[in-house]
Simulated assay, not measured.
Amino acid sequence: MARTNTFFWYDLMTSDPQAAGAFYANVVGWTLEDWPGDMPYTMVKAAGTGVGGIMAIPDEAKAVGARPGWLGYVKVDDADRAAAAVTAAGGSIQREPEDIPHVGRFAVVCDPQGAVFMMLAPTEPDQPGVPLMTPGHVGWHELYSSDPQKGFAFYETLFGWAKADALDMGPMGTYQLFADSRDKDCGAVGGMMRLPEGVPVPVWGFYFAVEAIDAAVERITSGGGRVLMPPMEVPGGSWIVNALDPQGAHFALVAPKR
């Protein structure tokens, strides 16, 4: 099972769930499965294991200008206690804790700089944990923040995350890697950096793992998506690409080879 205080589920809220599902099934290799609940929700799976879901943007979110985008869930033991800890650490509550029948209790929150994420205390057994670069799963987590140092301090206080290596990115500042545990043997699972040009507000981004980046780029473009930058090799030898899906949601891919 996924460890407490780690990202473990990812939802896409979009203007066209059916079209988005078909796009990602082709690009990432997911299978799609309708959730048997009252609200239309499509679960996405990689090799039979749940990764996240796709749903229409809720009306209340549309009313405040929400656009298509991915949101990540951090697993917690108690959603109410975790929400109180968010405000105590300087964050804010966007949606108070409430129950999802047969799933758990969740809350929508922001860190002090405004990046939105969710927390979920599952009531049912969750999906098993998988190694970081398993195809179809999230291989990297990235926070774009107006103040990465204060942002890291917030997550360290809230979830016990630990700093790993820091990379000097020149004019773009420091790229701070983080581990989701204070265990010294736990490797980095993501990075935090200052808002780059073209990213207007603090936000979490997620890199889905695929087997090879060039073939995935072809699937993005042929499926109606748009590549925002050409494939780039990153420290450690992996290849990444950032893109927009046909509905305008940002996503990224990571692969061990080009």
Rank of each mutant, 00 (worst) to 15 (best):
T6F: 03
C186E: 06
V108A: 13
W70T: 08
Y155N: 08
P231T: 01
G173S: 07
E124F: 12
G50R: 07
C110I: 02
M229P: 00
D165G: 01
E156W: 10
F23E: 03
P97A: 12
D111P: 08
L71F: 10
A88H: 07
P68I: 03
I213F: 01
M193Q: 14
T157Q: 15
K45A: 04
D214V: 08
A249G: 09
G190P: 12
P196D: 06
G90Q: 02
Y24V: 05
F8Y: 13
V203N: 00
W35T: 12
Q113I: 03
G198S: 06
T42P: 03
N5Y: 05
Y41L: 10
A82L: 08
V210F: 05
V76N: 08
P148M: 12
P36A: 14
G198E: 07
A82W: 06
G237I: 01
R67C: 05
E142S: 13
V27Y: 02
P235Q: 01
T221F: 13
D245W: 05
M39Y: 10
V116H: 02
S181H: 05
A216Y: 02
Q127A: 15
P135C: 01
T157E: 14
A84Q: 14
T221G: 11
V241G: 01
A85I: 10
V44L: 06
P128H: 09
Y144R: 03
K150W: 10
P97D: 10
E96N: 14
S181R: 04
L195T: 07
V217D: 02
